[in-house]
């Protein structure tokens, strides 16, 4: 990497290596159908993924879960790419996803090594009304941030908010963390097990735009510095529950489907089965996301609260 320069001067780009090997994962969660259908289609006919300067490999993340149309078999694959799972010797008695994570790590990693793939896309759906959300680990992922900026400016799909998904202080254990860089797409609302034409088309356009960006980058295009708005998850909010653990209230109708819209202190967040409103008791405005995501009931998350911020990114260009 030619990062010796690291110029404080805004006009000077940071030089990054070109991208040669790119992977596209669908079906990390087996019941999120947009990615499942697209990747299965691309495995048959990859022509729309092809660009001149790099190679793209589509793959199904969790084939057994896809076959059964469930999120996972033994545990969430998208939380399994941590050293504790990747670096132990896999045995047949391990959960399926641990074995599968090691396979993926072998093919597209090893994670953190110089042989790892340069970039990985991971295609997801949510039952929440999150639009075409772009998930990046954090603002320090320079290349991914430029890609997001490019998508927001050039893609025909509207409403592509950027969400930082890595909780502070925790290591990245998502599927895409195997590659050197990554971007996850989180499109909704779409029920689990359902493929909607509109979501499929949006995911496809964003992928095409993202691959165009890589092509331009590899060809030496200079991407100037910019400032961009993004949301950072700061906390999770669980459903109110009875002592026995059962949910005692649902997402309030005023909050349902209002992902990325401001939630002010005192706004209603839940409604009990007796019709009583439960108000937000924080002392600050947040931007909730993943509101009523089916898969998060078991993770004890009714929604995630985010903070909106503006993030400055330096220019980038391919290093020579």
């Amino acid at each position: 990497m030619e990062q010796g320069l690291k110029p404080p001067v805004m006009s000077h780009p940071q030089y990054l290596p070109s991208l040669r090997r790119v992977a596209v994962c669908g079906g990390t969660h087996g019941n999120e159908m947009s990615g499942v259908y697209l990747v299965k289609h691309w495995l048959q006919d990859p022509s729309e993924l092809q660009r001149s300067t790099f190679q793209v490999t589509p793959f199904v993340g969790n084939p057994r879960a896809v076959e059964q149309c469930v999120r996972y078999i033994g545990r969430d694959l998208n939380r399994t790419f941590a050293p504790a799972f990747l670096n132990t010797k896999a045995s047949d008695s391990d959960l399926y996803e641990i074995q599968r994570a090691q396979e993926i790590n072998q093919i597209f990693g090893p994670k953190g090594s110089s042989q790892a793939y340069d970039f990985m896309f991971d295609l997801h759906n949510t039952t929440a009304n999150m639009g075409s959300c772009l998930l990046v680990n954090s603002e320090s992922n320079l290349l991914s941030m430029h890609m997001c900026n490019y998508i927001q400016k050039h893609c025909t799909v509207r409403h592509c908010p950027i969400l930082f998904c890595q909780p502070p202080g925790e290591e990245a254990n998502f599927t895409m963390s195997v590659a050197k860089n990554g971007l996850a797409l989180e499109l909704g609302p779409q029920p689990q097990g359902v493929a909607r034409a509109d979501q499929l088309a949006k995911m496809r356009s964003i992928m095409a735009c993202a691959l165009d960006f890589i092509e331009l980058f590899n060809k030496g295009t200079l991407f100037p510095a910019f400032e961009i708005e993004a949301y950072k998850v700061v906390r999770r909010t669980d459903f109110p529950r009875y002592p026995n653990g059962e949910i005692s209230a649902v997402i309030h109708p005023n909050l349902q489907d209002k992902d990325f819209q401001p939630l002010k202190p005192g706004d209603p967040v839940f409604q009990t089965f007796d019709g009583e409103d439960i108000l937000d008791d924080s002392d600050d405005t947040f931007f909730p996301v993943f509101i009523n995501e089916a898969a998060y009931y078991e993770k004890k998350t009714a929604f995630c609260k985010t903070k909106k911020g503006t993030f400055a990114q330096p220019a980038i260009q391919k290093g020579f």
């Binding site: 039952t127 609302p189 029920p191 359902v194 349902q256 009523n292 089916a294 898969a295």
Partner: peptide, 13 residues
Amino acid sequence: GPQPQGVLRADIL
């Protein structure tokens, strides 16, 4: 409906 599987919506309820 419409309501995704595994989701509880106040309006549908």
